[in-house]
Amino acid sequence: MPEFVLPAYGLKEETSILEPFGTGLINNTWKVTTPGDSFILQRINDAVFLDPEAIAFNIQLVAAYLKQNHPSYPFIAPLTSTEGSQMIYVKDKGFYRMFSFVPGSHSIDVVHTPAQAYEAALQFGRFTSLLSGMDITQLKLTIPSFHDLELRYNQFLLALKNGNTERIRNSQRLIEQLQLRSFIVDEYKSIRQNPEFKLRVTHHDTKISNVLFDKDDKGICVIDLDTLMPGYFISDVGDMMRTYLSPVNEEETDLSKIEVRDEFYKAIVQGYYQEMKADLTGTEKEHFFYAGEFMIYMQALRFLTDHLNNDIYYGAKYPGHNFNRALNQATLLDALIKKQPLLENLAL
């Protein structure tokens, strides 16, 4: 437990209780309880975020903009240390930051109802909408090329040339299945050249656990802004589709459980449009359904690429773990595409 960080925030180690908190896979998170208050302490994974100071810079920039232009928005900024910094570095132990714990709030790990999906989509849409007047060129890239589908496809092709030959041979059917969907990459290339698609302040990690809810399951605000960067709306909407539409996540190996739930798709449309419909161009609205194809396909590529490269990025808890994840996402993509005639007009 990183009790050694507490004095940097004016807290006493002997009167503070630390316990692991949340289910995040990247950063380490603890809840700090003191006699008078509660806090959230995080260690930034600097193996993923190579420039943690860029995260702190972006958050300070957004916090200042919201304070000046939308002071009523409950933005949760990191606390300032006794030395005046919102992120501290401890030699040989890494980068840390601390937040106030919001009383009465909670997060959700799995979307259970369309109402929850609606609230989350509304919050992510509101966040981007409120920041629509911000100069995005000031933002730093915390993970360069994070949602660059063309790059991810090229990495996939490279893995087919240089990866584990046995795994390539045994994955041939899935490889061919994903290659047949390469039109999704072609569309992404067109989007990048289309002035109708705007770069906006984008969260890039819109799973339900990155929204704070109140006791009535109403959204309060978005959290975890480590991947906040300029991006296209398809990143945020697509990640919601990828993680909200199916009742099971990418770890599920029983493919019969994977489905696209129409009412959850409608909830994403309604929630996001509540805040962003007037801001999106006509061409962007025509690509609302594509957002799901884009994100699910990219994740399938990334999982399979890692499998062919001997699990060097995501790691594997058992043999074939990333292959199963890729197959899961390819199955979800097929299920979504089958629903296209029914769903794609809902966002026009």
Rank of each mutant, 00 (worst) to 15 (best):
Y9R: 08
Y9W: 13
E13L: 02
L18S: 05
G22W: 06
N27W: 06
V32N: 13
P35S: 14
R43Q: 15
I44D: 10
I44V: 15
F49T: 10
L50Y: 08
N58F: 07
I59S: 10
L61N: 11
Q68R: 14
Y73W: 08
F75H: 05
P78R: 06
P78Y: 04
S81T: 04
V90R: 14
D92G: 07
K93R: 15
Y96N: 11
F101M: 12
G104M: 09
S105F: 08
P114M: 07
P114L: 06
P114S: 03
A115K: 14
Y118F: 15
R126V: 04
L130R: 07
I136S: 03
Q138T: 11
L141F: 11
P144D: 05
D148E: 09
L149G: 06
L151N: 05
F156Q: 00
L158S: 14
N164D: 15
I168C: 03
S182M: 11
F183P: 02
V185N: 11
E196S: 13
F197T: 00
F197W: 03
S209W: 01
V211C: 12
L212E: 09
V222L: 01
L228N: 03
D236F: 08
R242K: 00
R242V: 02
Y244C: 01
Y244K: 04
P247I: 11
N249I: 01
L255H: 04
I258C: 01
E259F: 03
A267N: 03
V269G: 05
Q270R: 14
G271H: 08
Q274E: 12
A278W: 00
T281H: 10
G282D: 15
Y290G: 10
Y290L: 12
F294L: 11
F303P: 02
Y318K: 13
R325H: 01
T331M: 04
K339I: 08
